[in-house]
Design a protein around this nucleic acid. Structure first.
Lengths: 346, 346
DNA sequence: GTTAGCACTCGCCACCATTGAGTGCTAATG
DNA sequence: CATTAGCACTCAATGGTGGCGAGTGCTAAC
C-alpha cells in the first residue's frame, strides 16, 4: 500500500527526509524548492505535502511550522528511497585504519570497537559480547587452586575464553583433573552449551555412572562450571555525543536518554533480537517496542565467525540519523570483527 | 589558620553548609535563624556571614541572594565540623543485605558493587579493578589451543585470574608446558608483577640459560604473557542519578558531566591517587586538579586483602553531597569487599 | 494541473514592570 | 559594646505584551 506513491511524492518525501536529517528542523515548502531544483512552485509542493501528511508520512508540530517525517515516513524512506552504495576499497581501507586489534583480548577489543563506532558515526556505539549459551564447546581445563577450590577454564570453538572459580567438596589431584578434562573434551566436543547442559543432566541420571568415579566427578564438575548464565556483557560508548544532537537538547530528554543507555537490559533485549538475522537490521523509533527509545533508531548487525553467530554490534542515534553513512559503517565493522575472530581462531 | 574561627562562626558555617546540602540553594540569614535556634537575630548572623565571606568560606552568587559555601568552606566543614558516627551493627547488617556476592566472579562483583554504591548514595558509584602490575604472582598455567597458539592463565596471590592468548613460534607439547609452569610457579612465587618483569629481563640476559631449553622457553613465554599493561578497568554506575541533582540541571553541565564520567581515564587517574592511602579519602572540587570535575566531590577508599592493596572504589557526587551519609557507606563497602576477597582466597 | 496572492496561525524574542528575597548600613537599644 | 530593628537598595525571576517571521491553507487566475 505504501508503494503507491507517485514519483513526485517520492521525490518530495525524500527531499524532506534528507533536509530534516541535516537540519533537525521542520522543513517548509519554500526551503524544498530552493534547495532541490524541482521545477515546482512552493504551492505545488504544499499540495503534495498535505497529501503526504494525510497518508501519515509527515506531520507538523504546529500549524505555522514546516513538516517533519513521521516514523512511517522514515520507514518508507529507508525501505524504498534510500540507496546505500557500497564502500569503495579506498574507504574500507580508511575505515579499517581506525581499528587496531593486534594482540588485543576480546575484553579489550569490544569496548574499542564501541569507541570507534561512536567516533565514526557521531552517535552512540553498542557492542554486545557473544552469548555464552550459544557458543560451541571445545575445551575445558581444571586447575587446582587450593583445597576444595578449582579454577575452570572454558574455551569455545570460536576461541573465547572464560574462567571461573568453583568450590568442590572432594579434593582432586591435578592428575585426576587431567583425566577428567580429557574425558570431557572428548565427550562434549562440538556441542553448544545448551546441548552440553541437557547431555549432562541426562547422563547424570543414568545409573551406570554410579560405578565410574571419574565419570561421575567429570559430569558433576562440568555441570557446576557451566551452570549459570553469564550476564551478557554490553559496551556502550559515546553517550555524550548523543547529547549534542538537538533532539536531546532539553534536560528531560537528556536524562531519559542517559537512563536508557545506562540500563543495559533494554539494549541487550534489542540486540538479542537482531542476533538472529543476517546482515544489517534497522529498528526505527517505536519499532523497538520500548517507549524509552522514542525518537531513536538503532542500526545493528551481528558478527560471527565460521563456527556460528557470535555477537551483535550497532549504533544508536536519533531517528533522523544519517543512515547512508551509518549503515555501511556498521556493516563493515561487523565484517571486520568477524574476520578478526576468524583469524584469531587460526 | 583556619581554626581561629569563633565558636559562633563555626556554628553558623555549619548551619549554612548543612542547609545548603539539603536545599542546593543560597542560604539567607533569615532562613538560618528560623531553622536553627541560635538566639540571634538575622542581622547578627549577617555580620558573621560577611566575616566568613571575607575569609573565603562563603560567597554570594549575586548581591541579593544568600550565601553558598565555597570549596574552602566545605573543606573546613569536613575537616573540623563534620562528625561521622560509626554505623551501628544494625545499620551495617542493613547495608550488607544489599550485597549478594555468593559465587560471583570478580567481573560480576565489581559492577554490582558500583550499582549498590550509587543506589545507596544516590550519586554515581565508581569501582576500579585491581592494578595488574601490583598483584603478586602465585600461579601460571599454559594450555595448548592449537599449533602456535597458547592460552596463558595467570592467578594472583589475591585470587584474581587473568587469561590471554599468545602466539608462539615453537610448538610445545602439553607435557613440556607443564614442566614450564612448574618451573615458573616455583621461581616466581610471591613476587609482584613488576618484580617478576625485572627478574625475567635479568635472567634472559644471562648466558647460562642458552643451554637450558626449558628454562629459556619458560622465561620468554612468561615474558610475553605478562608484558603488556592490562588496561585499568573501571565501572561507573548511576550517572543518571547525578543528573537529578540541581547543580547539573542545565544541558551544558549535563553534557560536561556525562563526558567526564565517560572518559574513564580521568577517573582512573583520580582513583589511582587514592590507591596509596589507607581509609576514606575525600577530594573536593578543584582539589582533584581537573577542571572537568568542578563542582564535584569524590569520596573514595581502597579495598584490599591481607596480601596487599587491591583496588579502589568510591562515590562521585556534587560538592554539596551528603558526606555524613556517603562516607560510612564507602568505608563499609570497602571493608566488605576486602573481606569478600579474603574469604575467596580461602 | 499549476501558481500567485493573501489572510491567518503560532512560536519566538525582546521589552518592561512587578515581585520578593536578601543584603549592607545606620541608628537605636539593653 | 555587642545586638538588633529599620530601611534603602540590588537583582534574579516571573509574567504579560507586541512585533516579527516563517509557514500554511485557500482561492482565484493562468
Amino acid at each position: 500500500m505504501a508503494d503507491e506513491l507517485s514519483e513526485r511524492s517520492q521525490n518530495i518525501l525524500e527531499a524532506i527526509v534528507e533536509d530534516y536529517i541535516v537540519s533537525a528542523e521542520p522543513v517548509g515548502s519554500r526551503a524544498i524548492t530552493r534547495r532541490h531544483s524541482f521545477n515546482l512552485s512552493p504551492a505545488s509542493v504544499r499540495n503534495v505535502m498535505a497529501d503526504l501528511e494525510e497518508m501519515g508520512f509527515l506531520c507538523s508540530p504546529h500549524t505555522s511550522a514546516g513538516r517533519i517525517p513521521t516514523e512511517k515516513g522514515f520507514q518508507y524512506y529507508i525501505d524504498s528511497l534510500l540507496q546505500i552504495r557500497d564502500l569503495s576499497p579506498r574507504e574500507k581501507q580508511e575505515l579499517q585504519k581506525n581499528y587496531r586489534f593486534n594482540g588485543m583480548k576480546m575484553e579489550e577489543i569490544m569496548p574499542e570497537v564501541g569507541r570507534v563506532l561512536s567516533g565514526l558515526s557521531k552517535y552512540a556505539g553498542l557492542v554486545m559480547a557473544p552469548k555464552f549459551t550459544s557458543t560451541v564447546f571445545r575445551q575445558m581445563e581444571f586447575l587446582r587452586l587450593s583445597r576444595g577450590q578449582l579454577l575452570v577454564i572454558y574455551v569455545s570453538e570460536s576461541g573465547l575464553v572464560q574462567n571461573k572459580v568453583i568450590e568442590v567438596s572432594e579434593d582432586l589431584s591435578q592428575q585426576q583433573l587431567e583425566q577428567i578434562s580429557n574425558f570431557l573434551n572428548q565427550e562434549l566436543n562440538g556441542l553448544t552449551i545448551s546441548q552440553v547442559r541437557s547431555k549432562l543432566e541426562e547422563e547424570l541420571k543414568e545409573e551406570r555412572i554410579r560405578f565410574d568415579e571419574m565419570r561421575k566427578n567429570a559430569l558433576s564438575l562440568s555441570r557446576v562450571a557451566l551452570q549459570d548464565e553469564v550476564v551478557n556483557q554490553i559496551y556502550v560508548s559515546g553517550a555524550s555525543l548523543m547529547l549534542e544532537q538537538p533532539e536531546f537538547a532539553t534536560p528531560q530528554s537528556m536524562k531519559r536518554l542517559i537512563q536508557t543507555l545506562e540500563s543495559k537490559q533494554l539494549l541487550i533485549d534489542l540486540l538479542d533480537r537482531s542476533q538472529q538475522a543476517q546482515g544489517v537490521q534497522i529498528f526505527i523509533g517505536s519499532e523497538s517496542h520500548h517507549a524509552e527509545l522514542e525518537g531513536c533508531s538503532l542500526v545493528t548487525s551481528s558478527y560471527s565467525n565460521p563456527k556460528g553467530v557470535v555477537g551483535t554490534l550497532g549504533v544508536i542515534g536519533p531517528m533522523r540519523m544519517d543512515y547512508s553513512k551509518v549503515i555501511p559503517i556498521v556493516d563493515f565493522t561487523a565484517q571486520l570483527l568477524s574476520r578478526v575472530l576468524d583469524r584469531d581462531l587460526e
